[in-house]
Design a protein around this nucleic acid. Structure first.
Lengths: 251, 251
DNA sequence: AAGTGGTCTAGACCACAAA
DNA sequence: TTGTGGTCTAGACCACTTG
């Protein structure tokens, strides 16, 4: 049994996505929906508000609710935890710590300065493997002022990402994605020729506005892709065949 | 005046993000919130449901509502329309069509096959400029079965992305991001050496499950980054200084 | 079996923007 | 000024899950 407000949302969304109601078109008022569906206004309101939350419509007092213009440029990016993602693909995950040290923050490095301007960090370099082949090289900083337990944590067996997920509560993050040629060190770690094009994923994580960790992961060549899907939230019931699953995927 | 349900949501979210309520912690029942805030249950329900929609909590019948475990791996990716983004950065945008032809779909190309398995497409290659320097090379296919007007549209002055936004209603999209070395053609178009690491952004757009367009944009080197922000939806009121704005940015 | 969240109703008042 | 969306109330019934 599907809830009435969901049915109303779905039927309105269908009309919008089919083009029957083009962008700018006014959709029925709430009181019209209560008449059409024989429901209370709160139910109609919930249905329309869901469309507004999804970005499909815009609501204006006194004027009504209107079909919004498409904004394809926002998408949900699924940034997988490597261990989970590798196993989801049915491959063997492995992990190796290459280096570890504690040092003060270097405020001259712009990536580091975005994390914090002072204090000590644990600096790690490690590798992630899929089926015993190098998948990514990871450089990570963990701010000891925010996560002091990282000073004594053992990252030779536990990847820092997994450790942090278990030891740090809800947070915000920012990701930046770019391409860069592999330098000699990175190329050696990834076992590819120097100069190979790499996908570079950088992530900063904050907790209550204070930088917790910065991580830079490099993936060799076109071997891996980040996938982002856009679909109006909560209205993706109609799966389309022939399209791969979101996530990071190997070629 | 902030709505009561928003105040409740905010206060609950603060306790979660501060770590006062760690993942797995049960938060107050709805009936407890109605007592604490002196409101109706619908109001408390709306507040908690907003947290659930944002992914901060998980609700289980008969058990209660619990703080969710952080899932940093999902983020909202802002994929800018190039014309808009270049101008937002205060630069001069320019556009050039390099090639155009109409041909049948090639079902042997996996990128094309994800768009459609038959029918005719308009194939375009064009360049985007920022301050008269090449920013991106774009290869695009538009399926004439879904967008027949594209057969007669003039893409020598109007970028196909902008044209499609104006001529195609709400749609779904999937993005894939990878790195690749520039081949001779791409390198020439971007005015960089052959082999330069490029960020490759591919996007498929569907309308009612039918492929509308496929586009592949290549950006040279580390000159451009895609930015994705993660923050629980609707609870990002506390902006943090020192962090750049989302979007695509030049170095 | 009990109690939670999920849903819905039939009202109400208000702010605000459009006419 | 008018009518829309935004919000809220005080009930109610139900499904589901867990103890």
């Amino acid at each position: 049994m599907t809830a009435l407000h969901a049915r109303i949302s779905g039927e309105l969304a269908d009309r919008i996505r089919s083009g029957e109601w083009p962008p700018g078109q006014r959709i029925p008022f709430e009181h019209e929906l209560t008449a059409q569906y024989g429901c209370a206004r709160a139910t109609a309101s919930k249905a329309v508000q869901a469309l507004a939350d999804a970005g499909l419509v815009e609501r204006r007092r006194r004027a009504g609710t209107f079909v919004a213009s498409p904004r394809i440029q926002t998408a949900v990016l699924e940034i997988p935890e490597l261990k989970t993602e590798v196993r989801r693909r049915g491959q063997v995950y492995d992990y190796q710590q290459l280096a570890r040290r504690v040092r003060p923050v270097n405020p001259l490095d712009p990536d580091e300065a975005s994390l914090a301007r002072s204090g000590d960090v644990v600096e790690l370099r490690c590798r992630h493997f899929a089926n015993e082949r190098p998948l990514a090289v990871e450089d990570r900083l963990i701010h000891l002022g925010v996560a002091p337990a990282a000073a004594t944590a053992d990252f030779t067996t536990v990847p820092p990402g997994a450790w942090l997920l278990a030891h740090v509560a809800w947070s915000e993050a920012e990701h930046r994605i770019a391409a860069a040629a592999a330098d000699a060190d990175v190329a050696a770690a990834l076992e590819v020729p120097t100069g190979t094009a790499c996908l570079v994923l950088k992530r900063w994580t904050w907790r209550e506005g204070k930088g917790v960790t910065f991580v830079r992961q490099r993936f060799a060549g076109e071997a891996f892709e980040l996938v982002a899907r856009f679909a109006p939230r909560s209205f993706d019931q109609g799966g389309h065949e022939g399209r791969p699953t979101p996530g990071m995927r190997s070629k």
